[in-house]
């Protein structure tokens, strides 16, 4: 069985602290078997006496990580890295971390990994981590749609510079982040240790055979469902959850979600949830970002006695009531 290498994406607006976060993560021994793709070596401030240069775009870090710069296309960079790994020219990394540029929409990067004819047989998507600056983050979220999108699609949020931000401003920003993305676990980089393992590896795919991790994932979803976001009419991006009883016809659900994403994919920033699928004894986890849906995961166990299906959506300008009515109509249930 081929082992798929997870690809993590570190995103965040200009100056949000992506490189600082990466630098901190790279120092952890847990990341020894990781390859990192960045835009410029200069930014990361590596200690040039310790690293070993493989060629002009690639270096070997003291921790054992391979670090390279993206020249041109991302897919070409990942393929080159994969090819060198297969030939034994670089250490056999088991994880790839891609640092995106601050202005980038994360979706094309995710789409490249999942849909590229070569990459999809060797790599799979891991967590998306968004760094948000506690000082300038609120302004960036309000002014730059890219910034709000980066937060909405993230699986993990890291709040940086909280030590220099005003407490009221940080509280306001936290509120905004929870409205955009109610379920992603959040770390305060300046005040608490960052556990590289939780940040990078507890993704939806990794929990398939692990009921303890499944529990954690569910706990995040349930907390999100309870923490009903404050509905603010001045913003288009918002999160909402749908909870429904009984078993779901998986095929009809697939037809519905595919049709929804075909027409409104760019407005469905994120859909994540668990379904009680007809004919399956254990729940199925679905996880999608815009037009892209991860392969559905068959979970090892139910986390509690509740057998209802739960879906959390983060949408840009779509009406939650219309989505709820549509799903009910497709599944043949009263709205």
């Amino acid at each position: 069985m081929v082992e798929f290498t997870p690809v993590n994406l570190i995103t965040g607006f200009l100056g949000a602290g992506k490189t600082t976060l990466l630098k901190r993560l790279l120092a952890e021994p847990a990341l020894g078997d990781t390859a990192v793709l960045i835009n410029e070596f200069g930014e990361i401030g590596l200690d040039h006496h310790l690293l070993e240069r493989i060629d002009e775009t690639m270096v070997l870090l003291p921790s054992g990580c391979v670090c390279c710069t993206v020249r041109g296309e991302l897919s070409a960079a990942i393929k080159a890295l994969h090819s060198r790994r297969e030939r034994g020219e670089v250490p056999a990394f088991r994880r790839l971390v891609v640092e995106s540029t601050g202005l980038a929409d994360p979706f094309p990067i995710l789409s490249t990994v999942q849909n590229d004819a070569v990459l999809r047989h060797h790599f799979r998507l891991g967590n998306v981590i968004a760094a948000v600056d506690a000082v300038n983050g609120a302004g960036q979220l309000a002014r730059h749609p890219e910034s709000a999108k980066q937060v909405a699609v993230a699986d993990r949020l890291v709040l940086t510079k909280t030590d220099i931000g005003e407490p009221e401003a940080v509280a306001g920003l936290l509120n905004d982040l929870r409205r955009l993305n109610p379920s992603a676990p959040l770390w305060r980089a300046a005040e608490e240790p960052i556990d590289a393992d939780s940040l990078l590896s507890h993704d939806v795919f990794a929990l398939a055979g692990r009921s303890d991790r499944a529990l954690q994932w569910f706990a995040e979803e349930l907390a999100a469902g309870r923490r009903r976001p404050v509905d603010r009419h001045d913003t288009r991006i918002r999160a909402f959850s749908l909870v429904f009883e009984g078993e779901v016809d998986w095929t009809m659900f697939g037809i519905w979600l595919t049709m929804l994403l075909n027409r409104h994919g760019e407005k469905v920033l994120r859909v994540k949830g668990i379904l009680n699928v007809m004919g399956a004894s254990m729940p199925v986890a679905v996880h999608g970002v815009q037009h892209l849906v991860h392969p559905p995961v068959h979970m090892a166990a139910w986390p509690d006695e509740d057998r209802r299906s739960r879906l959390v959506f983060i949408v840009d300008g779509l009406d939650p009531a219309a989505i709820e009515r549509s799903l009910a109509a497709f599944l043949g249930r009263p709205a």
Binding site: Q114, N115, A208, T258, P295, P296, H298
Partner: peptide, 20 residues
């Protein structure tokens, strides 16, 4: 036609993936 495009409703069977 060049390959399938691996649509999620036709996901290739592998450990942990829900597929029919």
């Amino acid at each position: 036609v060049l390959g399938g495009d691996g649509h999620w409703t036709d996901a290739a069977a592998r450990p942990g993936v829900f597929t029919r």
